[in-house]
Design a protein around this nucleic acid. Structure first.
Length: 492
RNA sequence: GCCGCCUUAGCUCAGUUGGUUAGAGCGCCAGAUUGUGGCUCUGGAGGUCCUCAGUUCGAACCUGAGAGGUGGUACCA
């Protein structure tokens, strides 16, 4: 690439991309295993699709000639077609479903997980590449399909490690919101968007802030002014009444909503949908504290056509400094009946839920729910003398055959540094095979965990070193059993 | 995108109204301890003081522009 011999590239990951080490990889792998098992138990099949899609298949953010990378990472293929990295798993599903519609057993139920990419400004906890996990039903218009997705989300999050009560799924319906917009007299599309955006901010700004955004506009603490939706006072109060009609059981919420916007055709349709969802949730065993109706949930602006849901973290989370942090939404989804129609021209009902895996892992960690187990290193076989490498590898092989992680130290350093290496790797033990052991047919095993436990009380290095705690020299044939005993000593 | 704040060692940060060889703690490496990690002690390595331009006899410090980070806001499939 560069022909300047003195050029030294700066070793750094691209902005918004991150390296993830064993600790995070293992946590996320475990989440995906648990969630996949749940999704399969619900009858969803696995599907993997390519990282790239043709840009026109991804829809809304279709690159145009001047701004090909707006929102997505796009490049032009040999044949000059634009391809883009997928920004979620739903658009590729719509493409797949449209492409294979004739051959699929319908309704088509699938789950998928993998990296997605978004070319936008990264922020704290917000990356340009992240793992998403997604489950959808394509081809069922029944509200019960939405209820099942909600049940799936509840079960999946719990399997991932969120204890009951740590999160709740909040449900609403786009049809209710449309009924509300009609009732409030917001007819112009741009005004409708303003109203929905304002409603979406209820949890952050409170009713007063939302009222300002619905009316003339709001100036925030930094002095920036956000233009309002320009609704008249009676419309504002009906919107606020609607938005605040959550609380209590799902049934109670429905009754209150009916009081505010019942009577409009769209609103009644939405109420009927939520009513059926409520009944299905009861059958599915999803309780009131696991899924509730919340009229202030909006989610995205186009796209959704019926039920919308959002998974919200309820656990109090604190950052490293002990300050409270808002985690907010850890996943969401809803019904989108027009996505497949983009390809086929035929309206195809679909509903789904997705969550960010890293974000969920971060939520588990921040809430103290993640098992804080450190990544354990292998048993390290110390190298005394290069002439005996064959013996060292034989020992490592014996341990591996017994299912114990083991490695021969392959660096150049002396014994002291090898011990330090094993310590830093969090190895449970080292195996020492010096001249004495080899001629005697023995091995020396040092229990590093025991040493770690005892180290706190040590004052005198000399004494400590001479005592050699946790160290035993035993016949070579007893090695595996002795190592296993050390491993079993650790906490489950 | 807009507004504010910040940028000195791998990390967290000091730093004199602008004055010569820029510091600390932690971490790293080594020795004390030639077959023994974590404690202790001693030593060592490691810096374009974000970049460029300007003011000045002299800039880590002052001025301007830019880059990067961060907080808020907007947008968010």
């Amino acid at each position: 690439m560069t022909d300047r011999p003195d050029f030294r590239p700066e070793p750094r990951a691209p902005k918004g991309f991150q390296d993830r080490r064993a600790r995070d990889v293992l946590v996320e792998r475990r989440i995906l295993e648990q969630v996949s098992a749940v999704y399969e138990r619900y009858g969803f099949e696995a599907l993997d699709t390519p990282a790239f899609e043709y840009a026109d298949a991804l829809g809304k953010f279709l690159p145009d000639a001047d701004r090909p990378n707006e929102g997505v990472f796009a490049l032009q293929d040999d044949d000059e077609q634009w391809m883009a990295l997928r920004y979620d798993l739903t658009a590729p599903l719509a493409r797949f479903a449209a492409q294979n519609w004739e051959t699929l057993a319908k309704p088509f139920r699938r789950y998928a997980f993998g990296p997605v990419w978004r070319n936008e400004k990264p922020g704290p906890g917000r990356f340009r590449e992240f793992i998403q996990c997604d489950a959808d039903t394509v081809g069922s218009a029944r509200p019960e399909a939405d209820a099942e997705i909600v049940s799936l989300a509840v079960a999946g999050l719990e399997a991932a490690g969120l204890p009951r009560g740590a999160a709740v799924i909040k449900l609403n319906s786009r049809k209710l919101l449309n009924g509300l917009l009609t009732a409030a007299g917001a007819t112009a599309p741009s005004q409708q968007l303003d109203v929905l955006r304002a409603v979406d901010k209820l949890d952050r700004l409170g009713p007063e802030g939302v009222a300002l955004l619905l009316g003339a506009g709001r100036k925030d603490d930094s002095g920036a002014f956000t233009k309002g939706a320009g609704l008249a006072a009676p419309a504002i109060s009906s919107v606020l009444a609607f938005v605040q009609s959550g609380g209590g059981t799902r049934r109670e919420t429905l009754d209150r909503i009916a009081g505010v916007i019942g009577g409009s055709p769209q609103g009644d349709e939405g109420l009927a949908d939520l009513d059926r969802i409520d009944m299905a949730l009861k059958g599915l065993g999803v309780d009131e504290d696991q899924a509730l109706f919340d009229p202030s949930i909006v989610r995205g602006l186009e796209y959704y056509t019926g039920a919308v849901f959002e998974a919200e973290l309820l656990l109090e989370t604190r950052d490293d400094k002990g300050d409270r942090i808002r985690f907010g939404s850890i996943g969401g989804g809803g019904r989108y009946d027009d996505l497949v129609a983009r390809f086929t021209g035929e309206t195809t009902p679909a509903t789904g839920f997705s969550f960010g895996v890293s974000r969920l892992a971060a939520a588990l960690r921040a809430s103290g729910q993640a098992r804080a187990d450190t990544v354990r290193g292998p048993v390290v076989v110390i190298v005394f003398n290069a002439d005996h490498m064959a013996d060292y590898f034989a020992v490592a092989g014996e341990l591996r055959k017994a299912g114990i992680a083991a490695e021969v130290y392959l660096g150049a350093a002396g014994m002291k540094a090898q011990m330090k290496y094993a310590d830093r790797r969090m190895s449970p033990a080292v195996i020492m095979l010096g001249g004495d052991e080899i001629s005697g047919g023995t091995v020396t095993i040092k229990d590093l965990d025991l040493g770690r436990a005892l180290a706190a009380g040590v004052r005198d290095h000399e004494v400590w070193r001479n005592e050699r705690p946790g160290q035993q020299t035993i016949p070579r044939g007893d090695m595996v059993a002795a190592v296993r005993k050390i491993l079993e000593g650790e906490r489950p």
